[in-house]
Design a protein around this nucleic acid. Structure first.
Lengths: 116, 116
DNA sequence: TATTGATATTAGAATATGCGAATATTATTT
DNA sequence: AAATAATATTCGCATATTCTAATATCAATA
């Protein structure tokens, strides 16, 4: 299994890496909400929330269902987002650094390190 | 369980949300490496890799053990990082959008939506 | 101690991101 | 067809990120 990075991984992580967007996603996990609902909950302007929803949508984290003039947004990858949040909740901010021994690179052995 | 966002969650997600940094972390998961090792593997300058390692260290994702003039970096929250990668690997870029019904906000019922 | 190897830091330019204000769009209602 | 509600888009500016080039630091060695 090669450690290939898919571009959309970074897009997803970047999209989640903003306080307002993470909050939006957390709120949407509780239930589908339209833009006004989110606006009522979070301290951001309607335009700004709309902008963040666009980012989340481009990352395919959320999608919406049109309902008249409303757009009901929801998390379309709940397993992913819930999973990430679960992992974060299990982490302590100051978790003990797991001490690890050093790598193999040595001056007298130029091939000691793991080159490609 | 309130949906409180811890600031460091965003810091962690933001740190992982960069292609070079995600690659660094993936390589470190395979084994501890010094900066030169990473430099040999990834297409970035030494200075740049050092800068990214600083970001990852500030997010408490990696740490290092000093070994003479070398710094052997390693992922100090392997469960978290492996978990996130696992979740990402399980996602298809074009996964079917789970269709969800709309929220409750209706014109004739101003309290229908879930306000704070 | 001068040199070399390994890594970090700084400065500065290019680019990207975030956000408010204003405006546009679309659907519903009167 | 206006008026209104819900949402999106655009513009412009402030700020943040990212990267390169140059330089500094620090440890090991000749």
């Amino acid at each position: 299994m090669p450690a290939v990075i898919e571009n959309y991984w970074v897009t997803i992580l970047k999209a989640l890496g903003h306080p307002t967007r993470l909050q939006i996603v957390i709120e949407l996990l509780k239930g589908t909400k339209c833009v006004t609902d989110i606006h009522d909950i979070l301290p951001a302007s309607q335009a700004n929330i709309s902008q963040h929803l666009t980012v989340l949508r481009n990352a395919r984290i959320v999608d919406f269902a049109q309902d008249g003039s409303q757009r009901c947004y929801y998390v379309c990858r709940p397993e992913l987002v819930e999973g990430v949040l679960e992992l974060l909740r299990n982490e302590q901010p100051e978790s003990k650094a797991k001490k690890v021994q050093c790598c193999l690179r040595k001056p007298e052995n130029a091939d000691g390190h793991q080159a490609v």
